[in-house]
Simulated assay, not measured.
Amino acid sequence: MRVAAKIRHLALGGKTVLGDCSLELAGGWTAIVGPNGAGKSTLLKALAGLLPCEGRIVLQGRELADWSRRERALTLAWLGQNEASTDEMLAREVVMLGRLPHQAWLAPPSAVDQQAVERAMRQTQCWDWRERPLNQLSGGERQRVLLARALATESPLLLMDEPLAHLDPPHQADWLALVRERAAAGTTVLSVLHELNIALQADRMLIMEAGRTVHFGAPSEAATRAALQQVFQHRLQLFELQGQWVALPATPQPSASNVLPLHGRHHD
Rank of each mutant, 00 (worst) to 15 (best):
H102S: 07
D87L: 06
A77N: 03
A104S: 14
E71T: 12
T86Q: 14
M96W: 00
Q103T: 04
A111I: 11
A91C: 12
A73Y: 00
M96R: 03
L74E: 01
E93V: 09
L100H: 10
T86P: 04
A73R: 00
A111F: 00
G80F: 05
R69H: 13
E83Q: 08
W78T: 14
A77P: 00
L106R: 11
L97M: 15
L90G: 09
L90F: 01
S68Y: 09
D87A: 13
W78P: 02
A77Y: 09
N82Q: 12
E93Y: 13
L76V: 12
A84W: 10
R92K: 10
V94Y: 10
A107G: 09
V94R: 08
L79C: 13
L100Y: 14
E83T: 10
T75Y: 03
L100W: 12
E71V: 00
A84Q: 15
L100C: 12
Q103F: 02
G80L: 09
L79Y: 13
P108E: 14
R72N: 10
E71F: 01
G98C: 06
W78A: 03
V94H: 06
R92E: 11
W105R: 11
Q81N: 01
S85Y: 07
V95D: 07
A77M: 05
E83D: 15
L106C: 06
A107K: 08
T75C: 06
E83G: 03
L79F: 11
E71C: 05
E71D: 12
A77G: 15
R69D: 15
Q103G: 11
P108R: 04
T75S: 09
S85L: 09
S110W: 11
L106T: 01
V94N: 12
P101Q: 09
W105T: 14
E88Q: 15
P108W: 02
L97Q: 11
S110R: 15
W105A: 14
L100R: 13
L76P: 06
R99F: 05
W78L: 05
G80W: 07
M96L: 12
E71N: 03
D87I: 03
W78Q: 06
A111D: 14
A77K: 01
G98K: 09
V94A: 11
T75I: 01
W78C: 02
D87Y: 00
V95G: 06
L74R: 07
P108I: 09
S85C: 05
P108D: 04
R70S: 08
L90W: 03
W78F: 14
E93W: 07
Q103W: 03
A73I: 02
L90P: 07
H102R: 14
L100S: 06
T75E: 02
R70I: 07
M96S: 04
M96T: 06
P101L: 15
M96C: 01
L97I: 04
T75F: 04
A107V: 02
V94W: 04
S68V: 01
E83W: 03
G80I: 01
N82M: 07
A104G: 15
L106H: 06
E83K: 02
A91K: 03
P108C: 05
L90I: 02
S110C: 10
W105Q: 12
A77L: 10
A104D: 11
A73K: 00
Q103N: 02
W78Y: 13
N82K: 11
R99P: 10
N82H: 15
G98R: 08
M89N: 01
H102M: 12
E93N: 07
H102L: 12
E88H: 15
